[in-house]
């Protein structure tokens, strides 16, 4: 069975249709990249997939493991295995990082019918995964994302992904705001999570992320439609020639 199947997806914000019919199929083990210019609908697609209020699907279907997610709230989708790494991770003043992470992990475990993890075991688990991503204890003690640098916020996103072990991970502009070293650390974190357990959709404006996280497939999104699909070489073509030529050809 396909992991994620998007069929003729149309979506609007308010009265404005942003996605005009998207078809995309992702299988376990595959990494797909969606590239596109600003305003092409990339972030809208990520929000529609994760179930944000205010993004209305007017036609089409989204199937996760063969089940429609359209009637599911954001939290239900997450517990079913969907994950969104935010372009702009949200600061939650007063919400302690550890209790936030544990609430999320336990919600997912409960859904899977597994036992919740106790506090001590959880701290061990977080520390081990955090270390690999260069997330130190000091960051873990703070309120969620509060006072984090841009790079720290992105690493924290990937830490959450590592803890939640989603089946379908959507990474929205994960490279934005990262310097070269941070980009490498984040990419290594993502690559460590690649494998048969999950599929990934990497949304990006620039090719540079894709030389670190090498995709199996690349799709060009423009004007709310996928206008071209190919392999990783398509990303290089964008890098060399820009989006204009591709959009004109389509």
């Amino acid at each position: 069975m396909n992991l994620l199947e998007i069929k003729n997806l149309k979506a609007k914000i308010g009265d404005k249709e942003i996605l005009h019919g998207i078809d995309l199929t992702i299988n376990r083990g595959e990494v797909h990249a969606i590239m596109g210019p600003n305003g092409s609908g990339k972030s809208t697609l990520s929000y529609v997939l994760s179930g944000r209020d205010g993004y209305e699907v007017t036609d089409g279907e989204i199937l996760l493991d063969g089940e429609s997610v359209l009637d599911m709230e954001a939290d239900e989708r997450a517990r079913a295995g969907m994950f969104l790494a935010f372009q702009y991770p949200v600061e939650l003043p007063g919400v302690g990082g550890m209790s936030f992470l544990r609430a999320a992990v336990n919600a997912r475990l409960r859904e899977k019918g597994e036992d919740e993890v106790d506090q001590l075991a959880f701290v061990k688990m977080v520390r081990a995964k955090a270390k690999a991503l260069g997330v130190d204890d000091e960051m873990l003690k703070r309120a969620v994302n509060v006072g984090f640098s841009g790079g720290e916020k992105k690493r924290y996103e990937i830490l959450q992904m590592a803890l939640l072990e989603p089946t379908m991970a959507v990474l929205d502009e994960t490279d934005s705001g990262l310097d070269v070293d941070a980009l490498r650390i984040v990419s290594e974190g993502v690559n460590a999570l690649r494998g048969e357990a999950r599929g990934m959709l990497v949304i990006t404006h620039y090719q540079r992320l894709l030389s670190h996280i090498v995709p199996d497939y690349v799709h060009i999104l423009a004007g709310g439609r996928i206008i071209k699909s190919g392999d990783k070489d398509l990303a290089l073509e964008v890098e060399n020639n820009g989006y204009a030529g591709l959009i004109d050809a389509a």
């Binding site: 939290d75 919400v95 936030f100």
Partner: peptide, 29 residues
């Protein structure tokens, strides 16, 4: 804040739990 709620729910935390955590965070000051 809707953004706060969505971020938490996108991690699988139910709406009620997310609200409770945000209210506690609000009161903590």
């Amino acid at each position: 804040d809707e953004t706060h709620l969505f971020y938490m729910m996108s991690r699988g935390i139910s709406e009620d739990d997310a609200k409770n955590m945000l209210i506690q965070a609000f009161l903590i000051d």
